[in-house]
Design a protein around this nucleic acid. Structure first.
Lengths: 369, 369
DNA sequence: ATTAGCACTCTCACCAAGTGAGTGCTAACA
DNA sequence: TGTTAGCACTCACTTGGTGAGAGTGCTAAT
C-alpha cells in the first residue's frame, strides 16, 4: 500500500528531526516545527498508521516515534535529495587529496581521514582488489652471483619486485631461461588464477641449473603474488562514534570497536559488496545490525576497483554522506586516471608531469596489511 | 624514611588484593586473607601511616585503601619477584612465533597479538628503527630502456628496491656511473644522515645524460630512504580494555582509544623510550596519566632495535607481564639472530636452512605504515 | 605496642511520590 | 468524512528519604 503525500511529509519530518536530535519525536513538535497545516491530533493519527505499516517504532507508550530501518530505506530510495557539498568540504577534498596525488597508498589513507573528518563518522578506505589483474611478464634480474631481483609486471602497469638471495650461485643462462619460461607459463593469467593452480608445474628440467634455481625462486614467487593480491585497509575516525548517543553505552561502543579489530574479516566483507554507492541499513547488514554501512567505489584506470566507506548508526545524514562519498570517489577516480592511467604508483610526481605517455608511468607498490 | 617489614607486607598484600579484585581493600579483609598475625586495628594504623607517606589513597572516608602510583613503583622496584611463565604461555609463544619466523613483519604482528592474548591487555609491536642503519651500496639495474630498478642495500643486509619508469630512455653508461657515484657519495652514512643533508648535492655533471638521469632518480631515492626509515606499528587487543572496570565509563574508554588513533605520535613516543624492559606508571607518563605502559626491546642482529609494549591500567600484574615480555623479546631476538644475523626479510625459509652463510640471506622489506 | 569496641561517615540500593512528555480515544466540528 | 480539541492514561525520569553495609578513626583497656 502506498503512502499518501501527507504521510510522506510527516515521515520525512520525523526522520529529519530524529536524525538531528537523536530523540523520539512527538506529534506536537512536528506540528510546531514543520508547517504541515494540520494539528498534532491529525499527525498522531497518521503516525499511528505509519507505525502499523512498520515505518515507525515506539520505545515505550508515552515516548515519541522513532524511524525504523524500513523508513530509512524509503527515505534513501525515494525521499532523499542529492545535497550540494559545502564550499568548505569541497575545498578540503580538493586540497588534501590533490596534495598527495602521486602516492597511492597515502592518498587512499588521506581519503579515509577526510571522509571521517567531514562526516564525523568512522570511515575506511581500501586499496584496489587486484585479483582480476593479469600478469604481463615476469623477469629475473641479476644483482650479483647469488642475489637476484624477481619482478612481476601486471597488465595494468602494476609492478612488484623482491630481492632474493640464494644459497648457491646461479648462471645467467638459467636466469634468462627461467624468466622466459615463467612469462610464457603465466602471461595473461590473473594473479588469483596462478595462485589457485596450487602446484605451479615445473617448467621443465632440461637444464639442471635451472631446475635448482626454479626451486629457490618459486616460494618467493608465490609469496610475492600473495602480496600483490593483498588489499590494504585504512580505518580512521573510529573514536568519532563516542560522540554519538547511540554509542554512549559501553557495550554498544565495545561491539562497534570489536568489529574493526577483525581487519581481515572486514576486508573480505567489504570486497564482496557491489560497486557504486551502496547503502545498507540496520538489519540489511548481516553483522552490525544497528549500524548503517555506506560504501562507494573508485576506479583506477577503469579496471581496478577500490572501496571507501563509512559506518555509523542508522540515524545519519544519508543525503550528505552519500553526496560526499560520491564526490570523493569521483575525485579519486579522476586522480588515478590523470596521473596514472595504468595504475597508481610509488614513482615520483616529477616523472609524470606533462607527459603524453603518462599512462605507463606508475607502478603499484603493494604491501601486506 | 624507610618502611618497616610489616608495612611492606601490608602494602604488598593490598597491592595483590587490589590488582586481583579492583576494589578498595579494607583492613579486615587483609587480616583475614593474609596471615600477618595482627588484628585489623593494627593494620588500620599502619595503613593510615602508609597513606600519610603517599603509598595509599582513599576514594572516600568509608572505603578501603587503594595503592598509589608510588606504591606500584615501590612494588616494581623492590617487592616484585620474577614469575615463571605457565607452560601454556610458553607453548603459545614458541609455537606461534616460530611458525612465521621467516617473515619479518608478520612475526612482529604475531608478537603483538600474542602479547595481548596472554596478558589480556592492549599491546603493540614495532619494527626496528633503522635510522642508525648505514648504506652499504646503491645500485641501479636496467629493466628496459626506460625502466630501471633502484636498489639500496644497508650494512645489515637490509635491502629495499623500487621500480622507476622514466620519461626518456637512459644509457647503460649513465646508469653505471650514477650507481657508482651514488654509492661513493653515500656509503657508510646513515639513512638519517643522508636524508637530513637536505639538498643531496649533485654528483657532478660531466656527462649530460647522467645529469638528466640523476634528476629523475633522486626523488625516488629520497622517497625510498624515507620508506626504509619508517617504522611499522601493529596494535592489538585494544578492545581488551573494555573488560576492565577501570574503563567501564565511556569517557575513560574513549580517552584510551583516542590515544591509539594517533599512530605517528605514538610511534615517536615509543621510539624515544629506553631499551630493555621499561615500566612507567601513571603520572610517570606525560600522557596517559592513569595508565601503565610497559615496553621491552628486541634486537635484530644486535644492531637494530625494535619495541613491543603493553598498555593498561596502573592496576596490572606487573610481575607476570614483565616476565612475559622478557621471554617474548628474548625469543624474538633469538629468532632474528638465528635466521637472519644481518636482518630479517621477505625471502624464503627454505633458502635459509642449514646454511652456513645464512647471515646474509635475508632482506628487510620496509613499508610505510 | 596492640587490640577490642564503638561511634561515625559515606556509598549504594531501594522505594515512593511527583513531573512531564506524549499517546490514544472520544466527541464535537466543518 | 476528515479534522480537531479535550482529556484520561501511561511510562520514564527525577527527587528525596531511608536503611544496610563496609570501613574508618578514635579511645580505652590490655
Amino acid at each position: 500500500m502506498d503512502l499518501s503525500e501527507r504521510q510522506l511529509q510527516i515521515l520525512q519530518a520525523i526522520i529529519t528531526d530524529y536524525v538531528e536530535n537523536a530523540e523520539p519525536v512527538g506529534s506536537r513538535s512536528i506540528a510546531k516545527k514543520y508547517d504541515l497545516g494540520v494539528s498534532p491530533a491529525t499527525i498522531r493519527n497518521e503516525m499511528s498508521d505509519l507505525e502499523e505499516m512498520g515505518y515507525l517504532t515506539h520505545p515505550h507508550t508515552s515516548a515519541g516515534r522513532v524511524p525504523s530501518d524500513k523508513a530509512y530505506r524509503l527515505y534513501v530510495n525515494n525521499l532523499m535529495k542529492k545535497k550540494n557539498l559545502s564550499a568548505r568540504d569541497k575545498r578540503m577534498i580538493n586540497d588534501r587529496l590533490s596534495a598527495s596525488r602521486d602516492e597511492f597508498d597515502r592518498t587512499i589513507r588521506h581519503a579515509a581521514e577526510l571522509l571521517s573528518e567531514i562526516t564525523n563518522l568512522a570511515s575506511f578506505a581500501m586499496t584496489p582488489a587486484t585479483n582480476e589483474e593479469t600478469i604481463s611478464f615476469i623477469r629475473l634480474l641479476p644483482v650479483d652471483d647469488r642475489t637476484l631481483i624477481l619482478m612481476i609486471v601486471g597488465e595494468s602497469g602494476n609492478i612488484t619486485n623482491t630481492t632474493l638471495r640464494l644459497k648457491v650461485p646461479y648462471t645467467q643462462e638459467a636466469l634468462d631461461l627461467l624468466s622466459k619460461n615463467m612469462t610464457v607459463q603465466h602471461k595473461g593469467r590473473t594473479l588469483d588464477d596462478v595462485l589457485k593452480s596450487e602446484i605451479i608445474e615445473d617448467v621443465g628440467t632440461d637444464i639442471e641449473a635451472m631446475s635448482s634455481l626454479e626451486g629457490d625462486v618459486m616460494p618467493s614467487f608465490i609469496r610475492t603474488l600473495e602480496d600483490m593480491l593483498n588489499v590494504n585497509l585504512y580505518m580512521e575516525g573510529m573514536t568519532n562514534i563516542f560522540d554519538l548517543p547511540e554509542y554512549s553505552s559501553i557495550d554498544r561502543a565495545r561491539d562497534f570497536m570489536e568489529l574493526f579489530a577483525r581487519k581481515d574479516w572486514f576486508t573480505q566483507k567489504m570486497l564482496a559488496r557491489d560497486d557504486g554507492v551502496v547503502v545498507t541499513i540496520g538489519d540489511e547488514n548481516d553483522t552490525m545490525k544497528d549500524c548503517t554501512l555506506i560504501t562507494a567505489s573508485y576506479h583506477v584506470d577503469g579496471k581496478l576497483v577500490g572501496k571507501i566507506g563509512v559506518i555509523g548508526p542508522t540515524r545519519m545524514k544519508y543525503d550528505e554522506v552519500t553526496s560526499i562519498m560520491e564526490y570523493l570517489t569521483n575525485n579519486l577516480s579522476e586522480s588515478f586516471r590523470l596521473t596514472a592511467g595504468s595504475g597508481p604508483g610509488n614513482s615520483d610526481k616529477e616523472l609524470n608531469k606533462d607527459d603524453g605517455d603518462s599512462k605507463k608511468n606508475k607502478t603499484i607498490e603493494r604491501k601486506r596489511k
